Computed example of a mutant assay.
Amino acid sequence: MYALYDKTVDGEKLSFRFMEKVSLFGCNRGHIPRFLRARISATQSEPFQWDIRLEEALEKEGKKGLTFVIDLKPNNIAPNLSYYEVVRVWGVSAFGWSPIMFQLRMLFGDDNPARVADGRFTLTKADIDEPIFSLMYLNGSVSDGRLVGKWTTPGRSSTNSVLLWPETFDYFSGEMAKVRDDLERHRD
């Protein structure tokens, strides 16, 4: 499940308040395709490397102070709280597909669901584990300045692993290294 949260930062304290369930994927209602559509030129085609800083993209739409949160285990048999803030997404659109990489912050990992009451929770910056990266792919790409395909995740299958050609792997690993270096600089 993906949701939009209001996020307030007060010194070392971060407060989150649930706003609404949202879709990140899909060419009609998905936030990622919508943000990407606003960034591509009229002549853009494959291959296309792109990245979206999600809080900045929301702010450009007049949604300052909002962030995306993934409930990683919404239907777990045993109650489980696994919330991750989605910070950034990179993609490489080529051959009709777009492998993507998320930069995440772990807010809760296998925690007690009672820690979230009425869609609200508060953490300290020290509680957050970052950076974490997740890879997946979407059925969609860019051609002649337009998004093509459904921009959805593939259906359930035993072969849903992300196939990364060397150029895509190099792009993602290079971006990971930049994020890690930036976080290390800010910790010092």
Rank of each mutant, 00 (worst) to 15 (best):
G149Q: 04
K21F: 11
P99S: 04
I40S: 00
S134K: 13
G62K: 06
L164H: 07
P113G: 15
S93F: 04
M1C: 05
N75Q: 09
P33C: 11
S141N: 01
E167I: 10
R34W: 04
A177S: 13
D144G: 01
S134Y: 12
D6M: 07
N75D: 14
R29M: 08
G26S: 07
L14E: 07
K64A: 15
D144M: 01
L163N: 04
T8H: 07
V162L: 05
D51S: 10
I70W: 14
T152F: 06
P33Q: 10
F172P: 05
L135S: 02
R180S: 03
N28Q: 15
T159W: 12
E59K: 10
F25G: 02
L4D: 09
T67F: 02
W90V: 00
R17A: 12
F25A: 08
F18A: 05
S45N: 11
T8F: 02
A126K: 09
D129F: 15
D188G: 10
R88T: 02
D188M: 07
L4R: 07
Y137C: 02
A117V: 13
G174F: 10
F172C: 03
V87C: 11
F25T: 13
S134H: 13
E59D: 08
W50N: 04
R29C: 06
N75M: 10
P33K: 12
E56M: 03
E167M: 11
E55Y: 06
R120P: 03
W50D: 04
R105E: 11
L58Y: 15
L4F: 08
P154E: 13
N112C: 03
E20R: 12
K73R: 11
F102G: 01
L24N: 05
G140D: 09
P154R: 15
W50Q: 05
T67A: 06
K7H: 14
D170A: 14
S41N: 00
V148Q: 08
K7Y: 12
F95K: 05
V162E: 03
E175L: 11
A94Q: 13
F95I: 00
M106W: 06
Q103M: 07
F35V: 05
N160V: 06
K178R: 15
G11H: 10
E130Q: 14
D182W: 07
I70R: 15
L58W: 15
R17E: 12
N75A: 12
F121V: 06
G109W: 11
S23W: 03
P74C: 00
G30F: 02
I77F: 08
K7P: 11
A3R: 10
F48S: 06
T159R: 14
Y84C: 09
K13C: 07
Y137V: 01
A38T: 09
R146A: 00
I40W: 00
S41I: 00
Y2P: 02
K125Q: 14
E130I: 06
N75W: 10
T124W: 05
T8A: 09
G174E: 09
M1K: 08
D71W: 08
D170V: 04
S45M: 08
E85Q: 13
L54F: 13
N139D: 14
G30L: 03
E175G: 12
G119D: 06
R120Q: 15
F133G: 09
C27G: 05
K125P: 02
F48V: 02
L138F: 00
R115N: 08
K150E: 06
D110K: 03
K73W: 06
S15M: 12
H186S: 15
V162M: 04
T159A: 10
I128E: 01
S45G: 13
E85R: 12
V89I: 12
S141F: 00
